[in-house]
Nucleic acid binder design. Structure first.
Length: 1128
RNA sequence: GCCGGAGUGGCGGAAUGGCAGACGCGGCGGAUUCAAAAUCCGCUUCCCGAAAGGGAGUGUGGGUUCAAGUCCCUCCUCCGGCACCA
């Protein structure tokens, strides 16, 4: 590195001597590794738990957590230390402020890359993962982060995943009681142990409803709701089925993309046109039975509890959108039996297995506009219609087409379905009755309706929904306008609009009010007379109430509007009208609400639905249950076995962990049907209930069973690691009660600062909240929310270079030309910014580049792929490229390796640079060139306290009062900024202090002994102030000042106190504005009142001439800031 | 399309509605050096001017205010997320 002094290459005795004590990368490296070893040896950052020796319970707690990394083979990325440095600064600061600080680190170590590496090489994932962990640990330690390494663990540790499996069993053995009050806000909804459900069933408190739902017996009378059965009356199979349906962990069927050739399940974006992205093998959509978590049960709680969290508003919004709660109605449309075409519900039930087709809508007020129904291809009604068609051939006309459509739709992934907005569908050949209008309307099946949302069926209101509109247009289905905008045109106009609405021939209807004279209309007619085709394209109708309705076909709307005087009202007929307005065409036999505003109309419909039994108010969530199974190897095994009938049984908690078996090879199984990789471990899979550890009360020990061969997803281990850090070595519980209560409970419950990227806004952060909620409901933890305060560090991006045609140039083919003396420019290689010796004669450069250099700008250029240095001397065919910001990527060759930067500058400089780049939460481009500024700052700071000649502390005998005052201000500013996580400005304040303190040149006493500008005491406070940011240098200064021997590590000292009086000045400078423009600045006494300042300033010799001869209208005084004189 | 976030010197960025550009990079000039590197000092928003000084200026256009980078409305650009959710 040319920008860094290198002591080993420095020549001459004197300079060698000098360089020994000058702050350089080499010295920084020595200092850093030395203190890192000392901190480890002295256990400086070990934080005892309550009850352990050395624990000081009078201190407040501060739990400061990083999102733990996935230890990839590539090592740390520059993005990792950004968040980690931030939390390290806060942790160190909080320790100095007197807190017990829990600041742990660990490894999110199950995951795909290690498994894929194993597939290629046969090396066990544990081996590669352990290696990566060792490398990550080494790298993190090299940064000097103050983690309590005694708490380190990985999600792959048996001691850890044992408890992950234990939590799974807790979830498995829990149900969601919709009526039990939650302990957070008393509103209904809480997870409870299954045992309590069974007890309730046995006692008769709970009954089993006709549809398999949970029913509460009606109070003291014990009256049994109709259709409900008592627990005692159920068969053992029914009991098991009922309980399994109530569990928070249940087996559900969901569709996966299975690639037989790759033997693996693919994510939606790995499938392109039905082929795998890798290899182009065919991909099948297969139903797969998988473990699901009933996370939707807690949806309302997860939404409400967002209010308890000090999180970025954008993250809360993302979670809230993800949960996607919407209010509306469930409406039951009576089905017509296709055989009898009668509205007899019994007949419908007999033929179609259901009396009604139930839909969810957020716009119940548009029910009169529902002119057809649509069900999703997966909707059970489709199967029943097809079955009916088979029983009675000819009854369902298009049975073959329906079957064909459904089969095709099922094999299209959700992504594909959503890509083509073109609407497809087929009529089911059955009808149901619109309960409001009494009209029979057809039922269609179409893949624009999703089975996973609402009821998987909709009432289609083409006039007021864009998707329904497009569908109705495509299949020529009727539309009815039932909401109109306010106040425009009489009823007759809206009748006309209603007649023509959606008719593709017409573009718009124009209402011309009676205030326009018939002459205007005649004039328009005359104009149109001369326009070819106008005869059939424009239809003018006088309205009975006065005024006119003009229906216009394209493209004549503009002509019509242009020839009419304002105001006229134009209504587009060719698009859906999803907006609110006033109900129209909404009168039926039992209900009607014409003229009501949309919100009132909704209420009216809801009331009618409730009264008539055609539906009810309902809320629905976009959130889906969490698919918790993966068909992978490198994850936690489930503590579950199956008997020969396919019933599942839990492994007893005492038999955990269920260890992951070692495989001989990790090649996926090629198979038509989805096969988890663990199925290969035959001897592990096939076992007995006793060996597996199933409770003998559930299953006899010699019963043959098969183990669950799916594994848990990566997010399993990361959903509760914050809890485990409180007490990571506990053998008996997932966490010790006392430790958990101390770190996660109390006045400030949960993690006090959690820092990580915002890509986890909905995934990890929602799952972890749900686990915590369940564990809280079940009484295992003290707070329902794991992360009270959350912060996202911004992405560290990089520069990339773009040609005029927007193609990107790899960074190592780009050079930076900087202006230099005498018509030359200097050439710097990217990405390092290293200068080449050669200089280019600027006249040889293309004119445009020359011009920019002449303006003092530096220019980025590429010379083409094979550029070599020699060519710079001749005429240069350089092409200017534009610097843009992009993500770091291997192909752009702009990835920065933290190890290199530490080698070139040291860890302290690295830490400082990343914190100085800009606000922590913003994404910001890495610029290696800028690092040197922070290194220079550390050199100056070092020189302030240490003699470069002798290496001894350099202290002044007496404190300079100005510097003392500035030091107090700096301490105050830095402390305040750390609290705000505003590290860039804190560092700026430190730089300012060091720069100013460094200006006073080191004095020399008579005996040529140099003395410093700061006293020993001032230097010690400066070291304390630097300690959170650059702990190694601070420790070294502390040591050289002789304080470490006396007082111990700088990391264990109290933050320096400040004297409030030192923050005040006797005199302050205020700006003097004349009508808002700054004219001059004057000094006024700091304690002067507004009136005093005003008279002082107005009579000030510099101000008085400015206002002489003018009349002063007003004077605004802002003490300490400015005086604004408004004068003319 | 919808929902976020952001637009300030050559660059990263600073600024409780109150002196725009702190601090750093780069650039220019100087000191030191046989020389270079490193280091140190000074200047550095743009335009006009030798200077003193003057003018303009926080993506665009408008508004509120004694005072707007900051608050309100319009539009433009970039980045991120979601996207047939009835």
């Amino acid at each position: 590195m040319p920008t860094t002094p290198n002591p080993s290459s420095a020549a001459g005795g004197r300079s060698e001597n000098l360089s020994l004590h000058r702050y350089s990368a080499a010295l920084a490296g020595q200092i850093e590794t030395h203190w890192q070893a000392a901190w480890l040896e002295e256990d400086t950052f070990r934080q005892p738990n309550p009850g352990e020796p050395g624990f000081e319970d009078w201190r407040p707690k501060f739990y400061c957590l990083d999102m733990f990394p996935y230890p990839s083979g590539a090592g740390l990325h520059v993005g990792h230390p950004e968040g980690y440095t931030a939390t390290d600064i806060v942790s160190r600061f909080k320790r100095m402020k007197g807190c017990n600080v829990l600041h742990p680190m660990g490894w999110d170590a199950f995951g795909l890359p290690a498994e894929q590496y194993a597939i290629q090489t046969g090396v066990h994932p544990a081996e590669t993962t352990r290696k990566s962990i060792d490398n990550f640990r080494r790298q993190l330690r090299r940064f000097g982060f103050s983690y309590d390494w005694s708490r380190e663990f990985g999600t792959i540790d048996e001691d850890y995943y044992r408890w992950t499996q234990w939590v799974f069993l807790e979830i498995y053995n829990a149900w969601f009681d919709e009526q039990a009050p939650s302990k957070t806000d008393g509103k209904p909804g809480r997870a409870r142990p299954i045992a309590e459900l069974v007890a309730g069933l046995e006692s008769g408190e709970f009954l089993v409803g006709s549809m398999g739902s949970l029913v509460r017996s009606a109070g003291a009378t014990g009256a049994k709701p109709s259709g409900a059965r008592r627990w005692q009356d159920l068969s053992p199979e029914d009991r098991r089925g009922f309980i399994d349906n109530q569990r928070l962990a249940y087996v559900g069927e969901s569709t996966v993309n299975w690639c037989p050739a790759l033997g693996t399940v693919l994510a939606n974006d790995e499938v392109i046109d039905g082929k795998s992205e890798r290899g182009g093998h065919p991909v099948l959509r297969k139903p797969l039975r998988q473990w699901m978590f009933r996370i939707t049960a807690h949806a309302d709680r997860l939404l409400r509890q967002l209010d308890m969290l000090a999180w970025p508003a954008s993250t809360k919004k993302k979670q809230s959108d993800w949960i996607g709660r919407s209010e509306g109605a469930e409406i039951r449309f009576p089905l017509l039996d296709p055989r009898t075409k009668s509205a007899d519900p019994a007949k419908a039930a007999e033929g179609l297995g259901a009396q009604t087709l139930d839909v969810f809508t957020t716009r119940p007020d548009t029910i009169f506009g529902a002119t057809y129904m649509v069900v999703a291809p997966e909707h059970p009604l489709v199967e029943r219609v097809l079955a009916l068609g088979e029983r009675q051939p000819g009854l369902i006309k298009d049975a073959a087409r329906i079957a064909d459509y459904v089969a095709k739709a099922r094999n299209r992934s959700d992504v594909e379905r959503q890509e083509s907005k073109e609407k497809t569908g087929v009529p089911l050949g059955i009808r149901c009755v619109n309960p409001a209008s009494g009209e029979p309307i057809p039922v269609w099946v179409a893949d624009y309706v999703l089975m996973g949302y609402g009821t998987g069926a909709i009432m289609a209101v083409p006039a007021h929904d864009e998707r329904d509109f497009a569908f109705a247009r495509a299949f020529n289905l009727p539309m009815r306008l039932v909401v109109r905008p306010a106040g425009e045109g009489p009823a007759q106009f809206w009748e006309k609009v209603g007649e023509r609405f959606g008719n593709p021939d017409y573009y718009s209807a124009v209402y011309v009010p009676p205030m326009h004279s018939p002459i205007a209309i005649d004039g328009l007619s005359n104009v149109l007379h001369g326009v070819p085709g106008a005869e059939s394209a424009v239809e003018i109708t006088p309205l009975d109430e006065g005024g006119w309705c003009i229906l216009v076909k394209p493209p004549l709307e503009d002509v019509v509007i242009a020839h009419l005087p304002a105001p006229v009202y134009q209504f587009e007929l060719g698009a859906a009208r999803p907006d609110s307005g006033y109900a129209c065409n909404s009168i039926g036999a039992g209900v009607g609400f014409d003229g009501m505003e949309t919100p009132q109309a909704k209420e009216a419909v809801l009331a009618w639905l409730d009264k008539s039994g055609h539906g009810r108010k309902r809320t629905t969530c976009r959130l889906r249950d969490w698919t918790f199974s993966r068909q992978r190897y490198w994850g936690e095994p489930f503590p579950i076995v199956y008997d020969n009938d396919g019933n599942h049984y839990p492994v007893a908690a005492t038999h955990l962990p269920v260890k992951l078996p070692v495989l001989d090879d990790y090649k996926p199984v090629e198979s038509q049907d989805p096969q988890p990789l663990l199925a290969k471990a035959a001897s592990w899979v096939e076992t007995t209930a006793g060996q597996a550890g199933v409770d003998p009360a559930l299953l006899a020990p010699d019963t043959p069973v098969r183990r669950e061969t799916n594994t848990m997803p990566g997010s399993a281990g990361s959903s509760w690691y914050a809890i485990r850090y409180c007490d990571p070595k506990n053998k008996d519980r997932l966490v010790g009660k006392q430790a958990e209560a101390y770190w996660m409970g109390g006045e400030n419950p949960g993690v006090d600062l959690y820092v990580g990227g915002d890509e986890h806004s909905v995934g990890h952060l929602l799952y972890a909240r749900w686990w915590q909620n369940v564990l809280y409901d079940l009484g295992h933890v003290s707070t329902p929310e794991p992360f009270r305060t959350l912060f996202h560090q911004g992405l560290i991006t990089a520069h990339a270079y773009q040609r005029e045609d927007k193609t990107l140039v790899p960074t190592d083919e780009v050079y930076e030309l900087r202006p230099a003396n005498g018509g030359f420019c200097s050439v710097h290689m990217l990405p390092s910014g290293e200068p080449l010796k050669q200089q280019i004669d600027t006249p040889n450069l293309p004119e445009a580049i020359h011009a920019r250099l002449a303006r003092g700008e530096s220019v980025f250029v590429t010379f083409g792929k094979d550029a070599d240095v020699e060519r710079f001397f001749g005429p240069v065919p350089a092409e200017a490229v534009t610097q843009i910001v992009a993500k770091m990527s291997k192909s752009l060759k702009n990835v920065v390796n933290p190890d290199d930067i530490i080698a070139d500058y040291g860890a302290d400089t690295f830490r400082l640079y990343e914190m100085y780049m800009g606000p922590l939460e913003m994404s910001k481009p890495w610029n290696t060139r800028d690092i040197v500024g922070l290194h220079r700052f550390l050199q100056r700071a070092w020189r302030l306290g240490v003699s470069e000649q002798t290496g001894e502390a350099l202290t002044a005998p007496e404190a300079d009062p100005t510097l003392e005052k500035l030091l107090h201000r700096t301490i105050n500013k830095v402390g305040g900024d750390i609290d705000k996580l505003s590290f860039n400005t804190a560092i700026a304040a430190l730089i300012e202090f060091v720069n100013i303190a460094g200006k006073g040149e080191a004095q020399t006493k008579g005996d040529s002994q140099p003395i410093g500008t700061l006293t020993r005491d001032q230097l010690s406070r400066l070291a304390l102030c630097l300690a959170p940011f650059v702990p190694h240098m601070a420790e070294e200064l502390w040591h050289r000042l002789g304080l470490r021997d006396k007082m111990g590590s700088v990391c264990r000292q109290a933050w320096p106190s400040i004297d409030e009086a030192m923050l005040r000045d006797d005199e302050v400078e205020v700006a003097v504005q004349l009508s808002g423009k700054v004219k001059t600045r004057v000094k006024v006494p700091a304690d002067a009142g507004e009136d005093a300042i005003q008279s002082f300033v107005l009579s000030h010799p510099e101000v008085e001439p400015l206002v002489r001869g003018k009349s002063i209208k007003k004077v605004i005084v802002v003490p300490g800031r400015l005086v604004n004189i408004v004068a003319v």
